[in-house]
């Protein structure tokens, strides 16, 4: 019997292959029929029409087409043909920069504030209603307000990332801080450790795994939000890329963007998962 890891990997590959074959089969199926629009079309007229209309080709690209286009896009990721047409690498860099700024600000706000809330039952109760109301608001709902008040679409996008990614971190930090074992705090108290040092040497490491969980949820949200925000305000970024290709009804490029977004999101998550492993302690 093969080890579990290897078997799982083989099964993953098998699922992928089955999926790709099914996809290829489904998209190829429409092409062969030649039913409907293709028959008896005036060649002059056909010249003005797209392949979907003339040959009945599926609007859905086949995996081979997507693969070919993916290769084309990935082989020149940093071209710059003006403000509205840049390589996927540049767009990703724009999105990442926005996410990192917005997320960075969210971390800088959520963790200290989470400490305050976690340590003070008064603050916790006082702020709770605001947090509960603000937390479930969709990024797209924030956008018009941000655009209107901040008056800068770039900063608005960063703001929306901030406001959407701040809550899981805030709540997790507050929860992590509030549930630090009393005995650890007592250890620090009997050792006459000052409040600031206590926060850094006891509460922070004790709450770190919970905080990191919040940070992982948040980076996922931030990455979700950036795509939506960039689709809305446009300009640059992977979200703009999706929108621009949607505008062109290029399903192939949209699929590529989806792949890239997924892989990038996974990488961001994995980075934080690695950090989480470093700060997690067995008890």
């Amino acid at each position: 019997m093969l080890p579990l890891r290897l078997r799982a990997a083989l099964l993953s590959v098998l699922i992928l292959v089955v999926f790709l074959l099914a996809w290829q089969g489904a998209t190829a199926g429409f092409g062969g029929g030649g039913g409907g629009p293709a028959t008896g079309m005036d060649p002059e007229y056909a010249k003005l029409m797209g392949l979907t209309a003339t040959t009945g080709k599926s609007a859905m690209p086949s995996p081979v087409e997507v693969g070919r286009q993916l290769w084309a896009v990935l082989s020149d990721p940093f071209y710059d043909k003006g403000p509205n047409d840049k390589g996927l690498g540049i767009q990703l860099a724009f999105s990442l920069a926005r996410v990192l700024i917005g997320y960075g600000i969210a971390v800088a706000v959520a963790i200290p504030l989470g400490f305050v809330i976690g340590m003070s039952p008064l603050m916790s109760r006082a702020l709770d209603p605001f947090i509960q109301v603000l937390k479930p608001i969709s990024p797209l709902a924030w956008m018009p307000l941000a655009l209107y008040t901040i008056k800068d679409s770039g900063i608005s996008a960063v703001f929306v990332i901030f406001i959407c990614s701040v809550w899981p971190m805030l709540l997790n930090t507050a929860f992590g801080v509030a549930s630090v074992r009393k005995e650890w705090l007592n250890v620090a108290r009997t050792l006459e450790v000052g409040p600031l040092k206590r926060a850094f040497t006891i509460i922070l490491p004790a709450a770190a795994p919970t905080i990191l969980t919040g940070m992982r949820i948040s980076i996922g949200i931030a990455w979700l939000v950036i795509v939506a925000a960039e689709m809305l305000v446009g300009g640059t970024g992977i979200g703009y890329f999706v929108w621009n290709e949607w505008n062109n009804l290029s399903i192939t490029n949209v699929i590529i963007a989806i792949l890239v977004i997924g892989v990038m999101g996974m990488m961001l998550d994995q980075i934080l998962a690695t950090v989480a492993r470093l700060v997690t302690f067995p008890e």
Binding site: R181, E183, N186, V187, T190, P205, A206, A208, F281, E283
Partner: peptide, 14 residues
Amino acid sequence: DRAVIFQSHALLPW
């Protein structure tokens, strides 16, 4: 001046 040995040992696990 007064050290405590806790029932649950209260070691910092990290």
